[in-house]
Design a protein around this nucleic acid. Sequence first.
RNA 1: GCGCCGUUGGUCCAGUGGUAGGACAGUGGCUUCCCAAGCCACUAGCCCGGGUUCGAUUCCCGGACGGCGCACCA
Length: 576
Amino acid sequence: MSELTDLSELAKRRGFFFASNEAYGGTAGFYTFGPEGAALKRNVEDVWRDRFVRELGHMELEAPTVMPEAVFEASGHLDTFDDMILECGDCGATHRADHLVEDATDVDDAEAFAPERVADLVADHDVACPSCGVPLADRPVEAFNLMFGTNIGPGSSSPGYLRPETAQGIFVEFPRLKEYARNQLPFGVAQIGRAYRNEISPRRALVRVREFTQAELEHFIDPEYDDPPLERVDDVELPLYSAAAQQDDGDLEHHTVAEALEAGVVESEWVAYYLGEALAFYEAIGVDMDRFRYRQHLPGELSHYAADCWDAETEVGGNWVEVTGFAYRSDYDLRKHGKHSEEEFTVFRQYDEPKTVERATVDPDMSYLGPTFGGAAGDVVDALEALARRDRSAFDGDAVTVEVDDESYTLPVEKTGFAVEEQTESGEHITPHVVEPSFGIDRLVYSVLAHRHGTDEVDGEERSFLALPTGVAPTTVAVVPLMTKDGLDERAREVAASLRAAGFEVNYDDTGNIGRRYRRQDEVGTPYCVTVDYDTLEDDTVTVRERDSTDQTRVAVDDLADAVDRLVSGAALSEL
RNA sequence: GCGCCGUUGGUCCAGUGGUAGGACAGUGGCUUCCCAAGCCACUAGCCCGGGUUCGAUUCCCGGACGGCGCACCA
């Protein structure tokens, strides 16, 4: 617990993150990133963008956070995000009403029922409160949806929701995105943005909040023909905690990507591929890989869209925190949107060679069907088309009969325009499958702060530091004058300005004594300090101090920008 | 949402039925030529609402927020 206490104290005191709206009593589940935290978070996002968008050649978009109800009807969030809550009038405990009903009856999908029906079932089966035993028959079943609702425009005729995941903003634009991708699979579309969930009980600082930042990649693939570039990650060693290991009290196992696939520990090549790609990302932003694992979802844990799913988890304060979900979503989302909307969510897959197929078709004589069947004529045509595809022998006789809504309609075959023709097909429409790595940026920032925060001893004094990788540290270099007199401070300001002009994140600090300033920078994770001293006035050199070792070396002011650049690129202090 | 515990300067804490004290941090000054030193001064606080009381930061009730447990976590 003390790791978490120290972390939230540091976060507040140094401006990484803190509860929002405290002047008005605070709002549970909402956090503000302070100056240091906003910079750190932005840098983490930039590293993600560099690796998952730029390097892998994917594209990035930015969609609205408010989306209309129809989107969530299609995605399934309106139904499955809706919990039925039942509160005991006696002891006050709340229960999942659908679960109570499922336990008391042989119903096993009460979740899909309307709240009224569940309430009736509770009454009919004399369901009692599991906590205190009092009957629950007269208690109301209330729907609690985890999505934040709103109205689009005036009035309530056009309900909308704050998106519970950024993914839907990508899926709904698929028809246009595939055009942009020139109708070629595979292609990946990423988005970094806010998502919202009206959590019942926000907990543990940034771990469970109501507004958070996701970085999601939706990689659209042809399930039959597209393979991941496994050669990029074959030898990456993965710390895997499989479902089997979890159920049998087993341990974490280390396998390379290639081994994991061969042994069947990870089933999907695509999921395995992204587990491999992501590992270097976690390392780059400063996650302690000794406190990191990939955990497979247990069968009962799989979400409504996921076929196989692994989470990346970090250990913070004794708890494992989910920081990424790697899901093979199959064609679930695109298929749903294709069905609910008016657009096609498919791509055309061209055959290598056009195929000639024999096909049974109908071309009904509407001047006969219309007058004969009236309003049912359209449905009869549909039924005839289906029948022709299914069973062409039905058209062998003089008359053919189809069923529409329990009514039989019989008509002469000659009026159906039935024919068997040879058609040339150059391809087919397929619904792409989706591989989705979905990162929780806030939780990653939190993990990195926890993992990089430490204390040690320098010259007999305790030191608190944040060993952030240079690539994500809010400040790259701090410039400090040894004294604020004899022109040292003016010279130091010049040095700071020149480093800023060279493009670095620079902090200038001249309050308190020199040791205090070093410690301050250590605590916000600044990797390098440049000190202007009396020698600087003589020979135009400064000292460069390294955060982790506290070692120093002298560098000419003229070479300083170049030296810092080399340090950032990985050079050691001794190599300057 | 339920239960238990908590909420006092920026941070971490002490304390009181008569409006509060420390440590650290911060600011200014002195000192100091490289790692939270010293001296002086200063800034700054009782979560919100209601009740009891002559008087509430303190006691009671409610709320908000936080920690933990339960539940929940697509």
